[in-house]
């Protein structure tokens, strides 16, 4: 009895062999895929995320605008998809200031994504952002991002850190000295001072109006300023008070004009 060498294998055998090859094919393909994903992810991790430090500017509508950006470089071959970025910023007291949301975005392989962040904080006297003007502090930044890498690997990253914030009017003080009677008028010295710890130049003017406790305008002065980052400002001017106006118990109304934008600072009480 001799078996023909070129006869066709039985059906079950062929099916089993096909399934074994299919299983091996899937396994090998996935292992190669995993290897390339690991290599690409390693490159992405080394490229990392580069973020610019937060910068603040005063804008015309009485708000402070915090701007920044982060750059995500993807040198790998697989796309970073569904990138959703969120952040919350709180001041040194833990008071929530602002939330930021970016995305969903996609960063294709061998490309770089630049994601700007721009938030506006009102700086009225009662706002949570008021302290940003006058007090250096560490802002609590809590950020998170969700992405899908290489089509099938979801990734969540959470970041919590403190970022230093330099106040543009750190230690701001405005005071009215004791009036003196000179040439038939009451003249009072008005002094303002602060340190510019922000990253921008404070070039413009600072108008100070003295209001009595009854909110009567007693007069005012205007200080010109050109304060560079890191510099101190301390100036005194003399103002002739309007007749019968007593500044004691009143307020100093301060208006800041920088680069064409006008911002009212919170009133400064006069002892």
């Amino acid at each position: 009895m001799e078996i023909p060498l070129h006869r066709r294998p039985p059906l079950i055998y062929r099916l089993a062999r096909a399934l074994r090859w299919l299983g091996i094919l899937i396994l090998v393909a996935l292992l190669i895929f995993a290897g390339t994903v690991a290599y690409s992810a390693y490159e992405v991790a080394h490229a990392s995320i580069h973020s610019e430090s937060l910068t603040g500017v005063l804008v015309a509508n009485g708000a402070i605008q915090i701007g920044g950006s982060f750059t995500l470089t993807n040198p790998g071959i697989y796309p970073i998809e569904g990138l959703v970025f969120g952040a919350q910023i709180a001041n040194a007291s833990g008071v929530h200031l602002v939330a930021v949301n970016v995305g969903p975005e996609t960063v294709e392989g061998h490309s770089t994504g630049l994601f700007p962040i721009l938030v506006s904080l009102p700086i009225s006297a009662s706002s949570a952002a008021e302290s940003l003007l006058f007090v250096d502090q560490y802002l609590e930044v809590r950020a998170w991002a969700n992405v899908t890498y290489a089509y099938m690997f979801p990734l969540s990253v959470a970041l919590s850190e403190s970022r230093s914030w330099g106040a543009p009017f750190e230690g701001f003080h405005a005071s009215v000295g004791s009036p003196t009677f000179t040439n038939g008028s009451f003249i009072t010295p008005i002094t303002v001072g602060w340190a510019n710890h922000a990253s921008f130049v404070e070039a413009g003017s600072l108008a100070v109006v003295v209001d009595s406790s009854a909110m009567v305008d007693c007069g005012g002065v205007t200080f010109s300023m050109d304060v560079h980052p890191g510099e101190l400002y301390d100036q005194t001017q003399y103002e002739t008070l309007n007749t019968g106006c007593n500044p004691s118990g009143g307020f100093l109304q301060i208006t800041l004009s920088i680069a064409g934008s006008t911002t009212s600072l919170p009133p400064e009480p006069i002892p």
Partner: peptide, 30 residues
């Protein structure tokens, strides 16, 4: 301690499990 990461790989493993099931079926047929 400032950055925490959660990386999911369920889909990848599930596809590998399909390959294992296919191999299992092939063994059963043999």
């Amino acid at each position: 301690g400032t950055v925490s990461v959660a990386a999911g790989y369920s889909l990848f493993i599930e596809i590998l499990m399909v390959a294992a099931l296919v191999e299992m079926l092939a063994g059963f047929l043999v």
